[in-house]
Design a protein around this nucleic acid. Structure first.
Length: 465
RNA sequence: GGUCCCAUCGUCUAGCCAGGUCGAGGACGUAGCCCUCUCAAGGCUAAAACACGGGUUCGAAUCCCGUUGGGACCGCCA
């Protein structure tokens, strides 16, 4: 039985990199009919917050990454780690270190200055007696030999044991450190595959030794490449929006984000668009690449637009409503006819890349009047076009059946009678109706806006001139 | 600085493990054309890459070595 976990630390919102790690784990679990466990690594009490835990959970839910066990919290398991740490101490596999953090920091700076590796010098390792001073517990790494990490993505990676430092496993305040907790937790939670970012690859030999010292078998490891920003540095806040929830708030669909994230570092031939079922069916570690990937925001936007095109109008209406309210195009108490809203959305969906864009475009269907862009106004609403607009207004006023077909006939008749080009009529009307020179087909727009609002807007323009 | 990882179009990538079918395929983006009431969508076309140098081999994007370049880690953070 495959058991994997996603173990974020609640020191920030769930970001793009973390989300992809979570997704790969989730996909791997679902593909193998295994279990996906959520574990909150909150041993850093000073930086972890409840707010971030909630935010991470919200993001996971939004992405549809459901977990089978947890969320477990390391802070609830402090006594367990402590017991294991003291077990190692008693067995002579770890030792008390009386160096203070200040001293260590000083030595580290000194070493850096001298160009030496800034590693702990193991000075407390040989102290036999127990001193009456505050201490941290350090793990005794083997001094010689090699450790091989058999990584499912990277292959065999070999480390010299002499390069691995005696890491602190229990702080002087009695709290355990990350590298120790993961080992204990992954063992106790019976994790079979640890799939995590490549930034943890260098930690792996340390963890392997801890497993062995504790008499445990290490799980399989898979280190997936990093996600980089456009400047090729690891993706961070500097690169703009990196939190998953900010993509939700910007009008991205979770399906699109999931699809995008899946293709960052993993591929299935030439296929770009996958349903969630396909992702589960095809996902494997063999097809995960080794090279880091740059986050390509343009491609995400394209994928999002593809998903918007594929999504039924009813569903889009449901998703776009909060944006409509937020933008003030719709009052919270206001109800709109769903059939009508769907027609409106259908006319716009292939022109919008995000829900936010869709909401914005819908303003000219919902509002009574729209603001007209100055440039468009100057070009299309002037002495030349006013007579045309007046004429079309009269024609439309007389129209009983306010449908696309009838509206089109009015436009065409007028164009034919006056020897005009369609654009000479359509563009001014478009500008009056939508405030811009860009919109869906003008007959469709008029029908959806409806006779009443159409005439209102036209009259205001021709009257004002 | 040390250790570790990585290297195909600007970007995501297929191909690499089992060398020949690769004069390197797809996608995003870019440019042009078609369609057209505008903008999209759609269709067609184009420019665009095997980092470099050595081997091995009849033959290398694919295997080996080196160089260069990029990334990560080196905490009583996770």
């Amino acid at each position: 039985m495959v058991r994997v976990r996603f173990a974020p630390s609640p020191t920030g919102h769930l970001h793009i990199g973390g989300a992809r790690t979570a997704l790969f784990n989730w996909l791997f679990a679902r593909h193998h009919n295994g279990k996906f466990i959520l574990r909150i690594e909150d041993t850093d009490r000073s930086r972890s917050t409840e707010e971030y835990i909630e935010s991470i959970i919200e993001a996971m839910k939004w992405l549809g990454l459901d977990w089978d066990e947890g969320p477990f919290r390391q802070t609830e398991r402090m006594e367990t780690y402590k017991a294991y740490a003291y077990k190692l101490l008693e067995e002579g596999k770890a030792y008390r270190c009386y160096c203070t953090p200040e001293e260590l920091e000083e030595r580290r700076q000194q070493a850096m200055k001298e160009g030496k590796p800034p590693r702990y010098d193991r000075r407390c390792r040989e102290i036999k007696e127990t001193l009456n001073k505050p201490f941290a517990i350090r793990f005794k790494m083997p001094l010689e030999g090699e450790t091989v990490v058999d990584d499912l993505v990277k292959g065999n990676v070999t480390f010299k044991n002499s390069e691995i430092e005696d890491l602190v496993i229990l702080r002087s305040d009695g709290t355990p450190t990350y590298n120790f907790c993961v080992v204990v937790d992954d063992f106790e939670m019976k994790i079979t595959h640890v799939i995590r970012g490549e930034d943890h690859l260098n930690n792996t030999p340390k963890q392997i030794h801890i497993y062995h010292a504790l008499g445990m078998n290490p799980p399989a490891f898979a280190h997936i490449p990093m996600i980089l920003g456009t400047d090729r540095a690891r993706l961070s806040k500097r690169h703009g929006a990196t939190s998953v929830l900010s993509y939700r708030d910007e009008g991205y669909l979770s399906e699109a984000l999931v699809n995008f994230l899946a293709r960052l570092g993993w591929s299935y031939g030439d296929q770009e668009i996958f349903t969630r079922e396909e992702l589960i069916k095809y996902f494997n570690l063999e097809q995960v690449g080794k090279a880091n990937a740059v986050f390509n925001a343009e491609k995400l936007l394209w994928l999002n637009s593809e998903y918007i095109k594929l999504m039924p109008e009813e569903k889009l209406f449901e998703l776009v409503t909060p944006f409509l309210i937020k933008e003030g195009y719709l009052k919270e108490s206001e109800t709109v006819d769903t059939g009508w809203a769907c027609r409106a959305i259908k006319s716009l969906k292939e022109r919008c890349r995000t829900l936010k864009e869709l909401a914005h475009a819908m303003r000219y269907y919902l509002l009574d009047y729209v603001e007209i862009e100055p440039k468009a106004k100057e070009k299309y609403i002037n002495a030349e076009t006013i007579p045309i607009l007046r004429e079309i207004t009269e024609q439309l006023e007389a129209l009983e059946e306010f449908t696309q077909e009838r509206i089109e006939k009015i436009f065409m008749d007028m164009v034919n009678e006056k020897g005009l080009k369609l654009g000479q009529v359509a563009q001014p009307v478009r500008v009056v109706m939508t405030g811009s020179t860009v919109s869906p087909g003008i007959y469709e727009v008029l029908e959806i806006v409806g006779k009443e609002k159409t005439l209102k807007r036209l009259r205001r323009v021709i009257g004002a001139s």
